[in-house]
Design a binder for these strands. Sequence first.
DNA 1: TCTGGGGTCCTATTCCTA
DNA 2: TCTGTAGGAATAGGACCC
Length: 453
Amino acid sequence: VSRSPRASGGSTSERDGGVGGEPSSASAPLDPTIMHVDMDAFFAAVELLDRPELVGRPVIVGGSGARGVVASCTYEARRFGVHSAMPSSRARALCPDAVFLDGRHDRYGEVSAQLREVFLSVTPLVEPIGLDEAFLDVTGSKRLLGRPEVIARGIRERVYEELSLRCSVGVGRSKLIAKLASRAAKPVVSSGGVQVGDGVRVVLADQETAFLTPLKVEALWGVGPATARQLHSLGIRTVGELADVDPAVLMRHLGSGPGAHLADLAAGRDPSPVVPQRAAKSLGHEETFPRDLFDPQDLRARLVRIADSLADVLAHHQLRGRTVTLKVRFADFTTLTRAHTLSVPLDAGPAIAEVAVALLDSVDLVSGVRLLGVSLSGLQPADLARQLSFDLGHDGASHHAAATQAAWEDVSAAVAGIRERFGRSAVRPASTMRTEKRGPWGPAAQGEATPPP
DNA sequence: TCTGGGGTCCTATTCCTA
DNA sequence: TCTGTAGGAATAGGACCC
């Protein structure tokens, strides 16, 4: 090992510019080179692929109902100030001519899988972040594929050739730098128009400080509105100012963990590795209702349907979980959670619903409910859980839910099979059917029907 | 303006048990 | 047998990410 940074007393990055440089001699350890690939307006761009007649128009993907938000939008819509996470009502006011489309996550998932194939042809070390971005550790690919900038441009070209989609690529020694660099490579939108970005931005080791210093603190991973407010109150607005603050001060104001973490990021220190696969720690499903609901019986029925949807997700992942968490958001947007951990892992809809409904019954619902959600954590593979499920639990709730789980074991498998062949709506919990539109009791908007006499 | 749905991680508190 | 304590698990809330 001829070029070990430690052995030679200095970082190789000081010699070759940090991120890659020329391919090194065969046995030398290479400087880490991380890439962050971020699709441009991903959901909206996929919609335009399938509906080319919309190209050039402002297109907004997201819930178009009264309580929806923007999930993605084209740059034509961004010119009007529309951006993701904005309430749809506001987006419509800003851009009345926009075309609103409901999201098709299955479709985005398909394209995302194709995208991953491109990434995996460059390096096996791919860490997806959502459907539309990923970190790639290309440290070991440089000898074969060339300088980082060459690799990055190659990825960009292949994504465009194979998927007709554009992306931005950031390159640096760490995930922190790579992520910020990809943002710097993005197209810039103003009311005047769209300025095409570089597409690729490489930040070399000796450029890191100059690159980070002028950025706003909000640019850092982990600084959201609440942390930004606190930092602003301390007179800190840029990453450079943050780097000048004594870490002890940050730890005092933000807590020891987040404070120390933020001090590291501001100084450009981010040792976090690219992690190819992460096992899910929780799975959940939640629904916001078109209008607030007050009737406990109605809410219980909604919860059963949500638990049923969650059971589908669990079956798909072949997982069970021991902790059931109920989430309730009230009309005033305050949110509470209630959790119960069982001795036996569940995946059957009725068993999950039983626990969730019991939790719901412990909550005061008089102020009106806008959202209900159920999630399961403490996950384990279903086949392993099945072997261990002879233990029916000790406390009353566990015992009851475990018995329900056992009783529904075979039924759940049969339901999954039927849905596989005939679609999700082929089998539904009976208790949810009173909320569906149907015959003798007259037409009503879905989910708004009056219960039959 | 009025705030989705899918998650992760962190902190504080409470409760149980060795 | 009783008491104090330390530590872990469970619980709840909040911030943040895409």
